[in-house]
Amino acid sequence: MKGSFVRPNPLPGFGPAFGLTLTWVSLIVLIPLAALVVRPWSLGIAGVLASLGSPRVLAALELSFGASLGAAAINVPLGLLVAWVLVRGRFPGRQLADALVDLPFALPTAVAGIALTTLYAPNGWIGRLFAPFGVELAYAVPGIMVALVFAGLPYVVRTVQPVLMDLPADVEEAAATLGARPPQILVRVVLPAILPALLTGFAMAFARAVGEYGSVIFIAGNMPGLTEIAPLLIVIRLEQFDYSGAAVLALAMLALSFTMLAAVNLVQQLLARRGG
């Protein structure tokens, strides 16, 4: 097993650890996903294409991927701001704010969905403020975006934060001494250094948002073609005994996510190679 594919290394334990890892990955991830990859083809290629090409499916995929891109795009500046403030700022309650960032990680999605809907529904604390102007938050695309931004925020903050921490503050200070203002420091000095982390954070937030289910179904209107997300459509197909149809959609989403993650890992490796 240790053959030639692993570069020689004095450290022990590669064999057993690798074996355990492969067992673990295979049992819990690969075999189940294999079932998913095989299943749709019982429809035949034409059937798969027809199943993916229906307007309702396209609308759901467009909503899921569009809203997720939007939410991730919002999360990048927002997450950067929060991470920067948490790392460099000194203000009372900073540690509390720091801990709160992880809440979307830790809070069960269904609980988050109920809480966000309670807040943003037309009779909720925030929804009430917008309702008189005819602005709908819950049960419309803005509500979906809120839920997705909520779900993705910690990914950006937590990937950027450690890099910002490691970034020697004296570089920023030197820039400040040379007369640079905070926004300039951010754009010229900080941003290039954290670009890889920002990219990872964006990808993670995006991937998480695409698959998000528990919190979104509470706050989305779930109207076909308008506010129906792709994961819900999978559930709907499942409930109609349409296993292959559900698997087709799941596989399409999986392929898109996998491509995304692989691309980010590749870019990451390129940046690392260039940097080191």
């Binding site: 809907t117 529904a121 009779n123 819950a138 179904i217 209107g221 779930n222 109207m223 076909p224 559930v235």
Partner: peptide, 21 residues
């Protein structure tokens, strides 16, 4: 005229009754 399609009858009742929609 339907603004929300819940997945179950109970969900719809909750939307109408609790959320005031």
């Amino acid at each position: 005229q339907v603004p929300v399609l819940d997945t179950g009858a109970r969900g719809a009742t909750n939307t109408f009754v609790q959320r005031g929609l």
